[in-house]
Write a protein that binds this DNA or RNA. Sequence first.
RNA 1: GCGUCUGUAGCUCAGGUGGAUAGAGCAGCGGUUUCCUAAACCGCGUGCCGGGGGUUCGAGUCCUCCCAGGCGCACCA
Length: 560
Amino acid sequence: MNIIQETKRLLAAALMDAAAAARAAGEISYDELPDFVVEIPREKFHGDFATNLALLLARQARQAPRAIAAAIVQHFDLTQAGVAKIEVAGPGFINFTLDGKWLLPVLPAVLAEDEHYGWSNIGQGTKVQVEFVSANPTGLLHMGNARGAALGDCIANLLTAVGYEVTREFYINDAGNQIENFALSLEARYLQALGQEADIPEDGYHGIDLIDTVQHFLELYGDKYLDADPTLRREILVRFALEEKLAAIRQVLEDFGVHYDVWFSEQSLHDSGAVARAVADLEKAGYIYEKDGALWFKATRLGEEKDEVLVRQNGLPTYFAADIAYHRNKFERGFKWLINVWGADHHGHVSRLKSALKALGYDPDRLEVVLMQLVRLYQGGEVLRMSKRTGQYVTLNELIEEVGKDAARYFFVMLKSDSHLEFDLDLARSQSADNPVYYVQYAHARICSILRLARERGLQVPSAREADLGLLTEPAELDLIKQIANWPDTVAGAALALEPHRLTRFAHELASLFHSFYTSCRVLADDPQVRNARLVLVEAARITLRNVLHLLGVSAPERM
RNA sequence: GCGUCUGUAGCUCAGGUGGAUAGAGCAGCGGUUUCCUAAACCGCGUGCCGGGGGUUCGAGUCCUCCCAGGCGCACCA
């Protein structure tokens, strides 16, 4: 149930009738009604809803907005949407104040819909894929990956909630140059472990975690590959290491509450010929030419700044070529909407990938890339500099250990993805009021505490029918109900805009309204009628709060 | 140089897709508990919304030009 949307629709319909009546009476004139909005005004004293209809009509009607508004108000049928008061205000707004009880029906609906309250079917089962993290499987996940994990998972949760059929996917970059470097680095560590002289390449992987990986390899195979053919040796090492690294990545993501439906190997695109086919098809479409021994994608023909190499002089396809094949593969699997969560350092890649998809005959607008700015880590007021190559970085594993899954996820999603994220380790770690996660979770725990105590006293949350919800008239009660009623719109808005941070804002606001309510209204009051009404309200608040936290992937503790 | 993102209170950030008097948290000051969890509540804000110009009834929001910062601009991914 979305009582706010329904009320808006009623008001809009009544407004159209009123405008038509005013026109019939010759008081205003227009050909067609403009695309007006009925919205909840920012200021409370502007009423429950307001419309800009008269302002938009002014030009067509060649009349002053306030005069138009007055005419519409004259013909407005107050009974149609339970309007208690209607007035012209400001430059020509029409403000509505509804009957005080208009929001109450939302409470029984929340109790009935329970864990689905706020959900909708906007997506109508459309297949959408969310690809996120997709980190190189050569090490552990760092803070940037972690932000991507929280964002991507939350976006996937949101889209599921509004009725899409969502697939979470991790693209494994198990091909290309970095795998070569990975192999050489492993080999060097292997030889070093066996007492040989060996150097890790300049742009190789210097992280000490490779020493551990090689150690595990040694436990299984010993020095069996000491004198083996280097190509074979590297292949064996890489296969072993990738498996180990991927298992670790998969595990830490599970610990972070992220579960993927598909793990997709880049190498498989090369093996299956999908990459070659993509290049061939681009050639057929006339987008390929050869220069300096390489095959180029003529991206400039589609308005890009420059052309891109797809097959290098040495005959090996580039990452870009594989990525084109990958995204085509996504479409071929039937996804109607593709969402990628990428670090902002890849933003230059977006446009040319879309162009390539266009050249292959796909609608590039069906691919949406959520770019997130990079994470800066603060501790003790200082920036911690991270670099994967040198092995200096805070891993997701360490982060979960340090601040916990809940705080980490909340912090990563708290800001819109466009913003640089300054992650304050001390704050996230602090188990204090400063920490917004606890503030929200505490509200949930407090509600559970009330309900627990009620049960101990033999009191149940009454069915909505038993309770006289009309007794909920305190401002704190009404504000809380309003926020609860706002939840479905918040979910829908956050989902369609791919903006999970709206959830944390909503959660904080809801928690805040509950805390205020808690202070001014006693739930387990002596009067059984009041008590029952408030138990229903509190139960609805609990459900809503839990649903928000659920979408955030943050736990909703029953006691703290 | 070109592209892109960011610039809002001392700090960290919101401002639902153009609306009326721009908000929250933190920090700071002062209050609140014989009572369902004080991890809470209540009160206290003089903001050239980076700057100029434009669009219109109306701009933090849209266009344009500057300024400052982040990130890109490889036969890396």
